[in-house]
Amino acid sequence: MTATLKKTTQRGLTRRQLLTRAVAAGASFVVGTGFVAGRDAAWAMEVQHLQPESMATLVQMARDIYPHDHVGDKFYAAAVKGYDSDDDSDAIEAGIADLNAAARNAGYDSYLDIGWERDRVDILRGMESSPFFQQIRGGLVTGLYNQKDLWPLFGYEGESFSKGGYLNNGFDDITWV
């Protein structure tokens, strides 16, 4: 999934084009017509059904639910990209609207406008039992953590059959016990 994101950037827009056609969305994202991207233009995603701002909000929400500071936004973007579909987009837009309404009630312009994670998390706690929140959170369990190129960031090595298992490859190499 991540590979698709990179490809989109390369094929669709140069880094310069991307940044000149985009406006800021929150602290981490820029959005333009039909796309959302990281502020550093390290990744970009075309959106066809969701508003680009809604996708940016979804990526931020994904990070706030499962925050790993050593994991880049592209993994969170890949985890929620599937919601940009005909079937899902109406419900997702409604959920994002609820999220932004809760942010406005708390005195912010929008969810993405909230600067501190703890203040965004307060908003999420308030809607924790909603089907929208549970759909996003539940989907992330596999959508985020089952990305094979994410595993090395946690030290996890994945399959071992191709290297003959760990019998001669460190299954008992612990030194500190």
């Binding site: 639910i65 790993h68 959170r137 369990v141 985020l144 595993w151 946690f154």
Partner: peptide, 22 residues
Amino acid sequence: LPFMAAFLDPGGWGREFTSALD
């Protein structure tokens, strides 16, 4: 890692959860 995310604290989220997986 994938099953640990699913089974360590089902339904859990936020930094208490993710710092464990870190």
